[in-house]
Write a protein that binds this DNA or RNA. Structure first.
Length: 272
DNA sequence: CGCCAGGCCTGCACGC
DNA sequence: TGCGTGCAGGCCTGGC
């Protein structure tokens, strides 16, 4: 479920509870995630101190002072902070038990998430080394997007969701960003002008930044027993609004299928 | 029951 | 033959 704003919200919510904490141990209840959780993870991570909680794309990176824990939430993952003795539920596959008496618990019904250990700087890890720039950092700009898309006939919506183009833009924010930029999702990526690349970069940045800001309002509930952190309501312009009226022009929002993923767009506001 | 779901890696087929 | 490219498959459970 989580896209970049949700992952960033989780990061911000957890960071103050993790940084400086000793990891007493890790509890693995079900290793079968996207890749198996390493058997020896508890031994690798026990007694280390968390230096910082970072993020690269949708990956959370826990710097454990001599090793990094890489977390990914997949489609259905969530992390909660709760008392370490709290009884685990059916899909609570992993706990990081902290010296504070709390635990960070991974819940993931579909098990598309990941918990991996990396002994070296994870920027060189195979999963991270080829990733595109961060959308909210300087490396992602119109020049990059323009250069990166030259000669490509694939639809811009598909290209946006490719982590070699920009990280963190999932299905929801791809549709929302293209709407904000006024670009039809089927437009061939290679045919976007520099000006339209500029508009799209700005749209992606603002959509993500607003979603993160909205997520911030849920942080106060992060430690709550009922908390489902990382999920927050956002007023979408197109996503999930098939057949409804466009908030700008009143026309019908349409549903399209691209690469087996749903794309929502307004045919009159978004031109090729 | 079938279909759908916010991710993302892998492998295959294709065209140059 | 080798590359870039673009699909489709696969991993899972839960909800409608």
């Amino acid at each position: 479920m989580p896209e970049l704003p949700e992952v960033e919200t989780v990061r911000r919510g957890l960071a103050p509870h993790l940084e400086g904490q000793i990891v007493e141990t890790a509890i693995v209840r079900d290793r079968r995630l996207r890749w198996p959780i390493p058997c020896n993870l508890a031994r690798l991570i026990s007694d280390r101190t968390v230096r910082s909680l970072g993020r690269r794309g949708k990956y959370l990176l826990i710097d454990c002072d001599g090793g990094w824990l890489i977390l990914h939430l997949g489609m259905s993952g969530s992390l909660r902070l709760l008392p370490r003795e709290a009884a685990p539920g059916k899909h609570d596959h992993f706990d990081l038990v902290l010296g504070s008496g709390m635990a960070v618990r991974l819940t993931d019904p579909r098990r598309f998430g990941a918990v991996l250990w990396c002994a070296e700087d994870p920027s060189g890890h195979p999963l991270l080394s080829g990733l595109a720039p961060e959308p909210l950092e300087a490396g992602f700009d119109a020049t990059w997007l323009h250069d990166h898309t030259r000669g490509r006939s694939a639809a811009i919506k598909t290209v946006l969701m490719d982590s070699h183009t920009v990280v963190g833009v999932g299905n929801i924010y791809a549709s929302e960003s293209l709407f904000r930029a006024g670009i039809n999702p089927r437009t061939a990526a290679g045919r976007l002008s520099m000006q339209r690349c500029q508009r799209l970069v700005e749209a992606i940045r603002s959509v993500l930044a607003e979603a993160i800001a909205a997520g911030g309002s849920t942080l106060r509930d992060f430690v709550g027993a009922s908390g489902e952190p990382g999920y927050f309501q956002q007023a979408h312009y197109v996503y999930g609004r098939d057949g409804e009226a466009c908030r700008l022009c009143g026309g019908r929002i349409r549903l399209l299928r691209q690469g087996q993923r749903a794309t929502y767009y307004c045919p009159s506001c978004q031109r090729a």
